[in-house]
Design a protein around this nucleic acid. Sequence first.
DNA 1: ATTATACACTTATATATGGAAGCTGTCAAG
DNA 2: CTTGACAGCTTCCATATATAAGTGTATAAT
Lengths: 248, 248
Amino acid sequence: MANEPIATIDRNSYEPVYAQLVRILLGQIAAGVFRPGDRLPSEAQLCEQYGVSPMTVRRAVNILTDQGVVIAEQGRGTFVKPLELSTATFDLDGLQQLFREGQSTVKLLEARITTATERTARKLAIAVGDRTVFIRRLIFQGEEPMVLHREYVIYDPTRPLIEAEMEVTALRGLFSGGRGSDLKWGDLTIDATVLTEEEAALLRSEVRTPAFRLEHIFYDFDDRPVSWGWFICSGDRFRFTATIGVPD
Amino acid sequence: MANEPIATIDRNSYEPVYAQLVRILLGQIAAGVFRPGDRLPSEAQLCEQYGVSPMTVRRAVNILTDQGVVIAEQGRGTFVKPLELSTATFDLDGLQQLFREGQSTVKLLEARITTATERTARKLAIAVGDRTVFIRRLIFQGEEPMVLHREYVIYDPTRPLIEAEMEVTALRGLFSGGRGSDLKWGDLTIDATVLTEEEAALLRSEVRTPAFRLEHIFYDFDDRPVSWGWFICSGDRFRFTATIGVPD
DNA sequence: ATTATACACTTATATATGGAAGCTGTCAAG
DNA sequence: CTTGACAGCTTCCATATATAAGTGTATAAT
């Protein structure tokens, strides 16, 4: 009767019991009731304290575990994890918001068939001289040019990919998951770079402004590259953020 | 008898049944058996096909769901998600590897007590002129300087934080989760920048080389900032990578 | 023709139960 | 003092069962 928890489970809530338990435990960790290194109450204790079944407690603890908030050691207990920089994950929400709600417009600067250079051929796993489609787009937010996009797509007359890719909505589809394309997976890398003269002019910025270069290669279900390209984002208009630990 | 799965559950394996099921389903998605937009077999069908209980199937499907590979719609079915750029998450593994296995050494360049400037005071939520500890470190990989670190820590005589922070192992602790510090959470942002003259000299690189600036603020359990600082990583030695979709 | 109901099928949640595996301390035998 | 067996705790895994809730279709009533 000593450890009566302050928060209780609301059986009439729409929020499932296991989710309530996750929320309660997260709140206690955030409030400092359980600190890094501390042991959480055992699952049996949690069952009794909150009046729920073992499987429900297990589910809640599992969620905390693969959220990286706690670590469970068999035979010893469940412990609150200390801060780890390496758990930080940066996502592309900032970039994605660009393509929401029609606040952005895509202007097609160029789209033509070219022959692959040595570099392009290597990236796309084709032969030098093979034909590719080169696309250049500029993404505006209102009147402001925000992102420049260059992309090489393998030229394949049997596929209607070219026409689809050239549509202004193609980019949006990539971000918000539109049509089920025949792309299986992709590799992304972020590099630090500076704007070239051409890029600075298009983005209405100064030459040599620090910028991000988000490179992407997409593969089809035969694991063959389909497209290679990159986004150029001026560094004074973009940043990536992450939060580690358990904020309020 | 039509849909006998090729892979089966190994009851004698150390790998739990639910994990085996996750691996099997991921493999089938990667192999193109189930393509974006397709409906997975219903949970009841999976139960029968693999001879496992509903709860086990549920657990496997749940894992796929919060891995973002599939999306489950109540009453309709579970569907394979198409590629989404926004699901890409970049982690700091590259940076973390720096601190593994003693391959890196930390050289303390400077550590002295200063008074907060306007900018520092704002970041640390203190008054201008309050005392802080300024730390400058250089992280080497072998003979090569890789990362420059600057940090302002609130000066608090009651806490032995200063001595702890000044140890060369302090950085490693932050990355690999050493001692359970009294830090509750932190904010991280990545900016694009270029090396200043001082930074270029220390990192043995050219001035104005593109670089990443990883800024961090850590808070204690009273939600008050404890330290503010940033890492400078030359762009030709660092990049962030991510993979989306289901590769082999 | 339109609307309402019923039914089949789906995922979502929660309970009760049993056992396996790992850690830790105690206690007795050597 | 050391070693080994054992009990009691922990998390981990899997099953069987029941209820709830969303979706779509077929059917019956209006």
